[in-house]
Design a protein around this nucleic acid. Sequence first.
DNA 1: GTGGCAAACTTGACGATGTCAAGATAAAAT
DNA 2: ATTTTATCTTGACATCGTCAAGTTTGCCAC
Lengths: 224, 224
Amino acid sequence: MARRNRRVPKAPARRPRAGETYHHGALREALLAAAEALLLEQGVEHFTLRECARRAGVSHAAPAHHFGDVRGLLSAFAAIGFERMVALMRRYRAEASPAAAAQLRAVGQAYLDFAVANRAHFQLMFRSDRLDRENPELKSAGQAAFDELRQAMAAFQREYGPADADLAPRLLLAWSVVHGFATLLLENQLDVFRAGRSMAAYARTAGADILGLLGAGLMVPSPE
Amino acid sequence: MARRNRRVPKAPARRPRAGETYHHGALREALLAAAEALLLEQGVEHFTLRECARRAGVSHAAPAHHFGDVRGLLSAFAAIGFERMVALMRRYRAEASPAAAAQLRAVGQAYLDFAVANRAHFQLMFRSDRLDRENPELKSAGQAAFDELRQAMAAFQREYGPADADLAPRLLLAWSVVHGFATLLLENQLDVFRAGRSMAAYARTAGADILGLLGAGLMVPSPE
DNA sequence: GTGGCAAACTTGACGATGTCAAGATAAAAT
DNA sequence: ATTTTATCTTGACATCGTCAAGTTTGCCAC
């Protein structure tokens, strides 16, 4: 009722226009969309619940009714990230040769490509301080992504690896490689290597190099 | 940025007692020490400039005179972290066999042990949003740490690797492995693997497994 | 010594933020 | 039609980082 006379330097806190109802109707989705845009533009470090609400055209306390608190919202969006990553992994696998080595490379390249194409989103997915790790959607989506890697690595080991060796160390090694590379790249730690090339291009070429090295190394029975 | 009602034992802003001077005398060091304690206790996500000043017994605006802003302080402390990491790398290398493979493992294990023993400190060192990457001390300290790895990897390749191959992909692979493993471990992503064991113990055993696999894989000439 | 000046530190304010409590409104259930 | 519930707003609070302006102190020229 009271007109909100906000002296606004930022987003113009859009009031409901004619025809818009007091109830938003699809605020949950609108907030997730606003979060996506905000993360894309500003990065995970400048994400703000209030700015997110502003962009969705609602008051600063509205998100609480759908997500509890800011970690609830970000956890929901992180879960979406894992789902999209899984989708990309499956697409890459479908387009790759069915050979176990190619399948493993496809999963790794999908991991890297997703990270580079969705920088803030990826960073959010692994920032425990901004997430509620007990969120059930987040847990299951994260598990699904990990399962893609586990499955590809199991097939790889069935084909090349020593049959008696434990899967865990190889799985951990592969995950560490792609995750470490993505993390370092996104934190601008590899700028000296990248040397001007775009992140996407570099993730492609250097990523292929690294995944190739990793695969070649894992094909040899380890001396244990 | 009011966070939730974290059980924060907010130190009672100790006023200068009798005999203490208006000028602290060594405030810069006191602030860095307070930052260390605060990070250790609360983690990087709950670090606060004002709480840091409180612990050092000075007003909330005092740190600005020594560090500019919060990123200045954290960058200085991150630089200290890289220096300590380099010291640990050198100690491990000195204690290890001079063989290139053992030297490389020593560097990797030092990386992991430092990360686990200094969780918040390590996380800070790679959180660009809290740091000023142009800070000269931070830059040179980070470079020194990287040089340890580079040097060990160069020696490794001189001894085992294909002499004509490029060093960069192998260097990137090794860094990605240790960094990814440390990151995932500290973000509690490996709890299912860890299965109750302490982080330090797990970083030792699983870290050795992974570094062993990596070394074995790199000893074979890659098919490129 | 002593006057003055720059560095070190304090005080208070400002605009943010996340969350809570209480009110207003719409939709759904009875 | 009335009641209940879900949705959204409003306003307040504690806290944060930073800035501007005032105090205190160390120190150097004289």
